[in-house]
Nucleic acid binder design. Structure first.
Lengths: 234, 234
DNA sequence: ACAAAAGTGTTAGATCTACACCCATGT
DNA sequence: ACATGGGTGTAGATCTAACACTTTTGT
């Protein structure tokens, strides 16, 4: 028996409240930060939450994530990527709410130029605690996701200014991966990938020899279709 | 102003119909297959769809995926992983429906031992066409996801019998990645990772010298916490 | 005996790692 | 002049890629 009134079928099924939560990472003073807002819910008084909101009827999840980010921070044109859904039936005290976590990376300097809701604050990722809902877990999952992701994709560059020195880039990787890397090997690695564009400019206002400033050639990166055959489970 | 009646707040927000679709991969005759069912919806007469269903009120998405898989195939205890959500507001002719895609890997031989709904069929991934909804895109995204994932995680082993020869394993990788690999190097690679357990048994019913059969040591794999520092964008 | 795939080592090239000194700038 | 980080090269170890022959089984 075929189903002909599909509208009716869809209408008959359970619907769930669906939210998007943005885990917004920034990089400042050589530490990875996450942007949080004070909870406006009584039961979570004094706790911090991610930037989130319910999904509207006529928008994609990506669009919802961009909208939420824009509404809360005034910024647009930022890097956002879906990470995963959190769907424990009792994760939200108001009842069943499923949320899709998005990871976002912004340059913290651009960000602070904007007028912001003053309940927004940057928190060092390693020191975040006292979060509402399951947001602690969401931050942790996104952080782990980011650690993997920056090793195979240059998304981390979004945390830096347009023009950046190799020192800044290395500090970024060291902070996120929580390792110490050899400076010469790090440079060789990035130069050999051949995605850095030398701007010819130099750092300014540094109390030592200024470093060269580079941009990242995202177009070139996108064009190089990567076959990447290299099985390795370790 | 704090929000105190959080139940009421949640109740006031839009709800969306949410489904889970399982992309079930199998491996047979050296080709990657995907398990599809004939659509029971009039507008998609003659088209194929993934195994999907609406999410119930009190289950996680993972639980929904397992339930759907069990209901349709009779199997449990299978490998399932969340891939990503598809949320185009017009992806479903019955109205706004968001779906979460899950990738599942099963051994096609175990599978066919069960009595199955006879509208279920295995299709060669490269030849799938004429699918309902956006399921073609979902299959494509999951296939691409799988190609990456099997290079860093041994989930592909779930497509093989418990005991398998290295030839079978190599055929699997060659089929999924669509490349040709050197046999000796492939063996060296897997032996050096040291996750294969030699069962001491051999293939049977092959018209040539039988190969040794191995099991994969998933416990050992899980224990080896992988640091995996190796930046590489290419 | 033949067909078919199993099993096995070596070498050259590429990549990775570890490591130390001089240079340019601000104070 | 000195303190600070910028910039550079090399050698040894490791990993990767390319390559051919003998062995075992079924027919």
């Amino acid at each position: 028996m075929k189903i002909s009134d599909i509208q009716k079928l869809v209408a008959s099924y359970p619907r769930v409240p669906l939210t998007v939560d943005c885990v917004v990472f920034g990089f400042d003073e050589n530490a990875l930060k996450v942007l949080l807002i004070e909870s406006d819910i009584s039961v979570f008084e004094g706790k911090w939450t991610l930037l989130g909101d319910f999904v509207q009827d006529n928008e994609t999840l990506d669009a919802a994530a961009h909208r939420i980010f824009r509404e809360r921070t005034g910024m647009s044109d930022i890097y956002l990527e879906q990470v995963r859904a959190f769907s424990d039936p009792v994760r939200h005290p108001g009842g069943r709410v499923i949320t899709m976590a998005y990871c976002s990376l912004v340059n913290i300097r651009h960000h602070t130029l904007r007028k912001l809701d003053n309940s927004l604050h940057w928190h060092t990722v390693h020191e975040v605690t006292d979060m509402a809902f399951d947001h602690q877990e969401i931050v942790q999952v996104c952080y782990t996701w980011l650690q993997r992701r920056i090793q195979e994709h240059p998304l981390g560059i979004n945390l830096l200014p347009d023009k950046f020195s190799l020192r800044e880039l290395q500090n970024l990787y060291e902070a996120i991966l929580d390792v110490r890397l050899d400076r010469r090997n790090f440079r060789k690695k990035f130069f050999s990938m051949d995605f850095l564009i030398d701007t010819g400019e130099y750092e300014d206002d540094v109390p030592h020899r200024p470093g060269r400033l580079y941009k990242f050639d995202f177009d070139k990166f996108e064009k190089k279709k990567r076959k990447w055959i290299g099985i390795d489970f370790a």
